[in-house]
């Protein structure tokens, strides 16, 4: 690793140089090419596995074994219907999909409603330049690893008879995502011009009226970022899910996939169509919303 370190950083600097003085930099150094090589390798390394999942999802087992990247072999669309309806004795994939959607929607609702209301209350109640105590509390809440929380949360869900409920686990995820939403929206609301709020008040809007009609609509970007980040977190979360969602038909995609390995070993292609089905929805959302993610993370997002 240290070898990478010593070659990597000069290379980065070399890459940086190309933009600042393109005209003078005719002779590109070894570092430039090494850096460029790494970028190319990393790009290939990130695109191809994702692409392969989709290519392999329409291949037969022999083709999967012979061409692990998925570029050659016969098309076998039947994999998808097999995964969708489940192998004999296995769980149909649409159960997982529905459960994932349910938990994601519940989590997004809870996280956005609680998070934005809280950060607006914080912004309107603290004097400029001060970090509210409550914000610190939320940050501290982010630091506790899930491993410290899982056993009692399992106990709580058990007592409330909410085990095996994707909606309930979605609510839990929503609350856990709340600090992130507060951090992002707090930074955003802080920059909201006070004159606009005063103008709203003069026009007869209450504090909450200003919040609903001015602050929320004019902060669509950061809110969209919170929604996407929550969605990515909940769609992939399995540590809490695996303990709370024990019945086969209550599992989300992320949890269901953990048990998929042995289930379809006679048909590798079906395994990959399962992976593709789990990836496609979140991938589409990401590609549509990706610019918000960058801005949101810059405002202070940290996924659990």
């Amino acid at each position: 690793m240290s070898a990478t370190l010593s070659t990597a950083e000069p290379a980065a600097a070399a890459v940086m140089a190309t933009k600042t003085r393109p005209s003078r930099n005719h002779r590109r150094s070894v570092w430039w090419w090494l850096g460029f090589l790494l970028l190319v390798v990393w790009t290939i390394g990130t695109i191809f596995p994702v692409l392969s999942i989709f290519l392999l999802s329409v291949r037969g087992t022999q083709d999967v074994y012979n061409h692990p990247l998925g570029f050659s072999g016969a098309l076998q669309w039947g994999n998808y219907s097999e995964a969708w309806n489940g192998a004999p004795g296995g769980t149909a994939f649409y159960h997982y999909l529905i459960n994932s959607v349910v938990s994601v929607v519940a989590a997004m609702l809870i996280a956005i409603v609680l998070g934005t209301v809280t950060s607006y209350a914080l912004v309107r109640n603290t004097s400029p330049g001060k970090t509210p105590l409550l914000l610190r509390v939320f940050v501290i809440a982010l630091v506790f690893p899930l491993v410290v929380l899982v056993i009692p949360i399992f106990g709580l869900l058990d007592q409330a008879a909410l085990l095996n409920s994707p909606a309930a686990i979605g609510v839990v995820y929503g609350v856990l995502a709340c600090p992130t939403v507060v951090l992002i929206t707090y930074s955003a609301f802080l920059e909201f011009p006070e004159e606009l709020i005063d103008a709203g008040n003069l026009d007869g809007l209450s504090e909450w009226g200003v919040f609903l009609r001015l602050v929320l609509p004019l902060n669509r970007g950061p809110i969209a970022a919170c929604l996407v980040l929550t969605m990515i977190f909940v769609w992939g979360e399995a540590q809490l899910g695996i303990i709370a969602l024990q019945q086969a038909q209550s599992k989300t995609l992320a949890v269901g996939l953990l048990g998929l390995q042995g289930q379809y070993f006679t048909n590798q292609g079906v395994l990959f169509s399962g992976l593709a089905l789990a990836t496609l929805p979140i991938l589409v959302v990401y590609l549509i919303m990706q610019k918000f993610i960058v801005r949101g993370l810059a405002l202070g997002g940290a996924l659990r």
């Binding site: 790009t43 994702v50 999942i53 992939g236 995609l253």
Partner: peptide, 20 residues
């Protein structure tokens, strides 16, 4: 956009893919 892709793919999917 491309370099952030692996972060979007659910971790269980990446796990199963890389096991293979």
């Amino acid at each position: 956009v491309v370099w952030f892709l692996p972060m979007v793919v659910p971790v269980s999917v990446s796990g199963v893919y890389w096991v293979n």
